[in-house]
């Protein structure tokens, strides 16, 4: 489930990146973040499949829930990392404008 959720996040981020009007949202960072994790989890899944065989596709309900919760947390962490990097880079100057206004 973690792999599946991360792949969906990677595909969504890539579609958003492809339809972007400019690079100001730095969506490329989000794409690389999720694709990197997806590839790594794919390898993990392959090794697990080799070990468990068909049993890999019939996980217990508790494992599905735990993995889904982990997958969503991973997506949230990815979004937070992307947002922090975006605010630090501040390509649109929004943070600088807000700070100047308050100064």
């Amino acid at each position: 489930m973690t792999l599946l959720i991360t792949v969906f996040a990677a595909v969504t981020a890539t579609i958003l990146w492809y339809n972007r009007k400019d690079d100001s949202m730095r969506l490329g960072t989000l794409c690389f973040l999720y694709w990197g994790a997806s590839i790594m989890w794919l390898v993990d899944a392959i090794f697990e499949y080799v070990e468990l065989q068909a049993e890999y596709f019939t996980p217990a309900l508790e494992d599905i829930i735990n993995d889904s919760f982990l997958g969503l947390s991973v997506v949230a962490l990815g979004l937070v990392i992307w947002l922090v990097r975006l605010l630090i880079a501040d390509p649109k100057g929004s943070v600088r404008r807000a700070l100047k206004k308050n100064a």
Partner: peptide, 14 residues
């Protein structure tokens, strides 16, 4: 480097 860092950080979280 972005893919490697991204994957490593998210897997470290796991």
């Amino acid at each position: 480097s972005s893919m490697l860092w991204g994957g490593s950080v998210l897997l470290a979280f796991e």
